[in-house]
């Protein structure tokens, strides 16, 4: 479902003397249905960069990234938007929301955007929030004031509310206690069982071992290490 071949990336900093920073070269991997693959490597190895290139908020400069058949390098904005609406889910590390929108609404939003009826969407959102141990009294409050772990769980609920065929997970178990970590791992295993292709970053090796089938070391795709 995710096919990546020979992907390279560089940043050009126009306002800092036009410095060119090559950050990735020749990255290749694939993730099939029902498979969970972990990206590993030291900080700065390009794990998050690759995730963002697949999500589409980083541009792909060279090579090919195909998600569910769509080539993302040079894709039209509306094709990427359609992919995000129906196929590709992303649990980022941080929650970015409009300040006064209640948690329940935020979690339900991906379903509402798909045109699913509000009652059904909210019901599913309630189930997930309850499963992730977010106290009911917080559901009608905006998560901007929540603790880090609570925000992370709202983010996860939002990420898992839809049965995405392809999912990107950026540190889904960071800042969670043992009980909630177990719930998240269960959610990941359930997604795998229904056939989702998952690519993730897990610094928590226990979590990685519990859900991932393979690892890909991003350090192998650093461009010409001698130059650095």
């Amino acid at each position: 479902m995710i096919e990546i071949s020979d992907v390279g990336k560089r940043f050009v900093l126009h306002n800092q003397g036009g410095v060119v920073l090559p950050v990735m070269a020749g990255a290749s991997l694939h993730v099939g249905r029902g498979e969970c693959v972990a990206l590993t490597g030291a900080s700065g190895a390009g794990k998050s960069t690759l995730m963002r290139m697949i999500w589409g908020n980083y541009r792909c400069d060279e090579g090919s990234i195909r998600v569910a058949g769509l080539e993302l390098c040079g894709a039209q904005a509306r094709d990427v938007l359609a992919l995000r609406r129906g196929t590709l889910g992303y649990v980022s590390q941080f929650l970015r929301v409009i300040p006064r929108v209640p948690a329940l609404q935020i979690v339900a939003e991906p379903l509402l955007a798909q045109g699913i009826e509000e009652d059904a969407a909210l019901m599913r959102a309630r189930d997930l929030l309850a499963r992730l141990n977010i106290p009911q009294r917080l559901w009608s409050i905006s998560p901007t004031t929540f603790s880090g772990g609570e925000q992370q769980r709202v983010n996860i609920a939002r990420g898992f509310i839809q049965d995405w065929p392809v999912m990107l997970l950026d540190e889904p178990t960071a800042s969670l206690d043992a009980a909630n970590r177990a719930v998240v791992l269960d959610l990941i295993l359930e997604a795998k069982a229904r056939g989702a292709a998952i690519l993730g970053i897990f610094h928590d090796t226990g979590a990685r071992d519990a859900v991932c089938d393979r690892e890909v070391d991003m350090g192998a795709f650093l461009p010409g290490r001698a130059a650095a």
């Binding site: 940043f11 900093l13 126009h14 306002n15 963002r52 908020n57 980083y58 541009r59 904005a77 990427v80």
Partner: peptide, 21 residues
């Protein structure tokens, strides 16, 4: 021009980089 989060997170043009930063 392009996808909103791509233009804001990975701006290519000098002026956009300046705006975002």
């Amino acid at each position: 021009q392009g996808l909103t989060d791509q233009v804001l997170d990975d701006p290519q043009h000098a002026y956009t980089q300046l705006l975002v930063s």
